[in-house]
């Protein structure tokens, strides 16, 4: 079994992973934060896109479970000599890993890797398709804050159209019972939202007071100008989480962001440092959530 996306996993699956993550959070808080759950197993990290936080988070998770780790990045490797993805992953497979964690710029690449290798594969982000462990760590962060996701109002704000985080979070949050509203200019909303179990808004001001979670996405500067919105200042004026909008939020509501943040663009500097901004909790929960996914795939009865 693989973890290629949230789709295809029901609420029970996601809750098993979240419950495991709660247990592993306790492990991570021990003086010696390591358990032998995956001793003797080897996890291969295959990262075709540059990534620091996600790769380190996976590495920390694997090591806390006592798994061995192989790291592969294409720079300076056989890939620069023209080796195909298929040959690369089959070569890595020949070295005997039990699972591959794959990040790739093309949607569906981890699915191909799973088919080629027959190994369990964890999708660590593929194009604009899915980033399911991000969705698990975000769901974990929200559940730890509010106890559950049922009936929470979660607003995802920003470049939803090009975001794998948005796609996996929409699937996870709604599967776990939350209501999701997507907030962005039309050019950054899904081009066709018929299959998205969400509502849409083009005004952050209209929805901000109703939200329990304001989930901000990174705005890529290159999308400004001629591309999909007129300019960054215009984006900030309508969709940035400014101090004024932060003040308009429900007092219990929290702010989340998958990082890395653009301070002063999608999030005001002082909002980013507020105690209701859970950005660092998300990072911390990422290790536990990834431990849970790895253990779910490789540990105990579910392995094989």
């Amino acid at each position: 079994m693989s973890f290629l996306g949230i789709e295809g996993h029901d609420r029970a699956d996601l809750e098993v992973i979240l419950d495991l993550a709660d247990e592993f959070t306790e492990v991570l808080n021990r003086p010696i934060p390591r358990v032998p759950a995956l001793q003797g197993k080897t996890v291969a990290h295959v990262f075709y896109e540059s990534s620091t936080r996600t790769r380190l988070s996976f590495e920390r998770a694997a090591k806390a479970l006592s798994a061995d780790v192989m790291n592969f990045a294409p720079g300076g490797s056989s890939v620069s000599k023209g080796e195909s993805l298929k040959d690369t992953v089959l070569t890595l497979k020949a070295m005997g890993p039990d699972l591959m964690v794959v990040r790739h710029g093309s949607a569906g690449a981890p699915t191909r890797v799973a088919a080629w290798t027959g190994l369990p594969v964890v999708n660590a982000g593929d194009g604009a398709h899915q980033h399911p462990t991000q969705a698990m760590l975000d769901s974990l962060t929200i559940r730890r804050r509010f106890g559950k996701l049922d009936n929470l109002r979660i607003g995802i704000v920003g470049d939803i159209r090009h975001s794998r985080v948005a796609r996996s979070n929409v699937a996870a949050f709604t599967t776990l019972g939350a209501d999701v509203v997507l907030v962005a200019p039309r050019t950054l909303l899904p081009v066709d939202s018929r299959e998205w179990p969400v509502t849409l808004s083009e005004s952050l001001d209209e929805v901000i007071g109703d939200l329990d979670v304001v989930y901000l996405l990174r705005i890529q500067a290159e999308r400004g100008g001629a591309s999909v919105f007129p300019s960054l200042p215009e984006y900030v004026s309508r969709f940035g989480l400014t101090n004024r909008r932060f003040a308009a939020m429900n007092p219990e509501a929290v702010v989340m962001h998958p990082g890395p943040m653009n301070r002063g663009i999608e999030i005001a500097d002082s909002v980013a440092d507020d105690e209701r901004a859970l950005v660092l909790d998300q990072v911390a929960n990422g290790v536990a959530a990834r431990m849970a996914v790895l253990f779910w795939l490789l540990g105990g009865e579910r392995s094989g």
Binding site: A107, A128, V191, R194
Partner: peptide, 13 residues
């Protein structure tokens, strides 16, 4: 094709 499927898969349509 740009439509509901491409939108959900996150592929440029």
């Amino acid at each position: 094709h740009e439509g509901a499927v491409s939108s959900w898969l996150g592929m440029a349509g």
